[in-house]
């Protein structure tokens, strides 16, 4: 059907992004909507030896309810719990969160921090791509109009640290002004931020500094490193200055208790 629609169709997962703009967006698109909810095979998630595999329709709630996810990959559960309210969590899907390509996607940050890989399927076959290489720019991604996200593989590497911190416009039911996922594993540090760039992104300069144990005695040191990782903007939800400053502050206060090289150095005056 996707191929037949000539690339003009919009796929519907949990429809939580679409219905916010209903019915106006329907007029904008004036096109074809394909409801995937009947494709039962896409719903289930499973645990394989090497990875947690999310289906194309696995919801946030499915993972919140999975005790194993809570034990092994708490960052996913933490992020899922910050999305909207329970009603949204039970409808919203991880794959939809990826494909909607919002820079503010909380689920994407949590998946990316765990080196998730996206599986794209079309009539021509299956393609896999790392989530941290998936986005090209604002709402731009390596997803052809005839492809659909059929699964997301999240490697089961154990992390000594993993968490998601959301700064929303209020305590609940809010879109992120800033989100940041932090993880450390054998692969090194991962810092993924949302709402501070055209797409959810890894902060590779900060990651390298943490891997190299570069002393970061003050928030300003992080502000500087982040300067080459993120490019926040002023919009109706917040300001670039706020996003830059608060991302650095949140990271600093999260990292300081974990890394002795972050924070005022012992013995320093």
């Amino acid at each position: 059907m996707l191929s037949e629609a000539g690339g003009q169709a919009t796929l519907l997962g949990g429809t939580t992004d679409l219905f916010v703009h209903w019915p106006e967006r329907m007029l904008d698109a004036d096109g074809v909507f394909i409801d995937l909810s009947g494709v039962g095979a896409l719903r289930a998630h499973r645990w394989e030896d090497e990875a947690l595999v999310l289906g194309g329709l696995t919801t946030f709630w499915d993972i919140i309810q999975d005790e194993r996810a809570d034990r092994e990959m708490p960052v996913l559960v933490q992020a899922a719990r910050t999305v909207g309210a329970v009603q949204i969590q039970t409808r919203g899907t991880w794959a939809g969160n990826i494909a909607n390509a919002s820079p503010a996607a909380d689920g994407v940050a949590a998946l990316m921090v765990r080196d998730a890989v996206v599986e794209l399927t079309s009539c021509d076959g299956i393609e896999t791509i790392r989530l941290d290489e998936f986005y090209l720019g604002y709402k731009q991604m390596r997803l052809r109009r005839d492809q659909i996200i059929t699964s997301i593989r999240v490697p089961r590497q154990s992390c000594s640290v993993e968490r998601f911190i959301k700064v929303g416009t209020r305590q609940a039911q809010a879109i992120s002004k800033i989100g940041v996922a932090i993880a450390q594993s054998q692969a090194g540090w991962r810092i993924v931020a949302n709402s501070v760039a055209p797409a959810v992104c890894r902060c590779r300069t900060v990651e390298r500094a943490l891997d190299d144990r570069v002393p970061l005695p003050h928030v300003d040191a992080l502000v500087e490193l982040l300067g080459s990782d993120v490019s926040p903007i002023d919009d109706i939800r917040s300001t670039a200055a706020y996003r830059r400053g608060v991302l650095a502050r949140v990271l600093y206060h999260e990292l300081a208790p974990l890394c002795e090289w972050v924070g005022p150095q012992r013995g320093a005056s």
Binding site: V20, R170, A172, Q173, I175, I236
Partner: peptide, 16 residues
């Protein structure tokens, strides 16, 4: 109003 939607005009929830 540029933010004439409830997603971007923020009122308190019970948590606030």
């Amino acid at each position: 109003m540029a933010n004439a939607q409830l997603t971007n005009y923020i009122i308190p929830t019970a948590c606030d």
